[in-house]
Design a protein around this nucleic acid. Structure first.
Lengths: 237, 237
DNA sequence: TGGTTCGTTTGATTTGAATCAATCGGAACT
DNA sequence: AGTTCCGATTGATTCAAATCAAACGAACCA
């Protein structure tokens, strides 16, 4: 078993034990395909605030987030920033046919990813309809999220934006870790502002307002959704 | 040849002659696959302002736009509208794995589409890596556009929004019909406003301002980009 | 213990775009 | 030619969020 262990160590992984195996792209692979797939991937770690890839980088790799949270964002030449999404474990990030990524990704807190070189991954996926269909499904899901976010950015008030964000973020965490109205917020107020198309001051004021109204309680490192029905109503309306 | 002609008439199409054959999803199909594909599709026509599908409709069909322009939009319960995109010939619209479309599409002016029932299309595509890869490519492209639009909605001023829209729309038309600084705008001011996250008044004022500054000339049914360099600078900055 | 830092909150003021309110102007009718 | 529409434009005013400006408070360190 020594060789096998060495191989596993070298690639730094064992798909069978992987935390996201059941619901990420790789869920579409059978055990034989997965064997081959294992050899294409490499685990990598990133420290808090480290950049995984930048907007202008040649897109040489895809990333499957295994642990931690990433912010995905675009910068305008003058420094204005729009966060286009937060990635959570299981999210497949950086999939593109373009030459360059077009957006940057960095770690919010320590992050573990499963990394694939674009070329070998492409060749592997080429003739695997299962995998291609799964990738499609994920792309379409992201596209739907993106469209929802456009509505938020273009047509909602600050209060609605913040409520929608909190409810949506909670729902994603619930899916991942099980039901709870405790909502950890690993990202900064500035991140939230840049995600919602607001300023940090407006986000802060809106948090305070929601707390005064008894909808949330602001806690160190997050919030608690005290009246999730009211928050959900704000998010829907 | 009579039978063949009848078949073609019944399905209302002949892929080989299709205007979008070269660059739409179907570009990935060889001539044999295309034969089979032909039998899955039906042409359909929609009059000005007719709805092709609505947000809450069960997504039973995909649509390949052959001619005309469509607006794709989401409505909030209170009637606020966000246009998430305009579709032009060659665009593949309504692709989703979800039960419902999630957005509405209607015709701006007369529209011709090539329509596929979800089930048969899915079965056809299932084991066709070429087609699946092409669908992926298109989904990823749309996702990139969606992210760009998020930046616009979240972080740009009214003037930048309008300039970006005009330059982007011109570029899409150039790709389709060849270079020209005449920019036909088949959509209403309200449509443009709902696309850019503005009001109709702000769009109108911004058009007037850009005209005063000599960047555009407002013409019936569109604008002319008089100083496209300056417009592009506004769009980039 | 006191000082520095940095993210966050709070307060005062400004402002860009929204809202409210006419008016304009071309197309389609009598 | 006159009337009705309806989308687009223009003007006056308001307002939500941005900007400018402190102050707070927890973490870290000297």
């Amino acid at each position: 078993m020594k060789t096998s262990l060495v191989a596993i160590d070298f690639h730094g992984q064992a798909c069978a034990d992987c935390a996201v195996r059941g619901f990420s792209v790789c869920a579409s692979l059978d055990q034989f395909e997965m064997r081959e797939f294992e050899h294409l991937s490499r685990r990598a770690h990133f420290a808090t605030c480290e950049t995984v890839f930048a907007q202008e980088d040649t897109s040489s790799c895809f990333y499957n987030l295994l642990d931690g949270v990433m912010r995905l964002y675009k910068l305008l030449p003058d420094g204005r920033r729009q966060i286009v999404g937060f990635a959570l474990p299981g999210d497949f990030v950086g999939m593109t046919t373009e030459e360059r990524h077009g957006f940057s990704a960095d770690a919010i807190g320590p992050v573990t990813v499963c990394q694939f070189a674009k070329g070998p991954f492409g060749r592997f996926a080429e003739d695997k309809p299962n995998l291609l269909r799964r990738m499609n499904e994920l792309a379409v899901q992201e596209l739907n999220q993106a469209r929802d976010h456009m509505v938020l950015l273009g047509r909602r008030s600050a209060e609605e934006k913040v409520a929608t964000f909190l409810v949506g973020w909670r729902d994603r965490l619930v899916e991942l870790r099980g039901a709870s109205n405790m909502v950890p917020l690993p990202m900064s107020r500035q991140d939230i502002a840049d995600y919602l198309g607001l300023t940090i001051e407006t986000v802060s004021r809106t948090f305070t307002k929601l707390e005064r109204e008894g909808i949330i309680a602001i806690l160190p490192g997050g919030v608690s959704l005290r009246d999730s029905a009211r928050a959900e109503a704000m998010a829907a309306a």
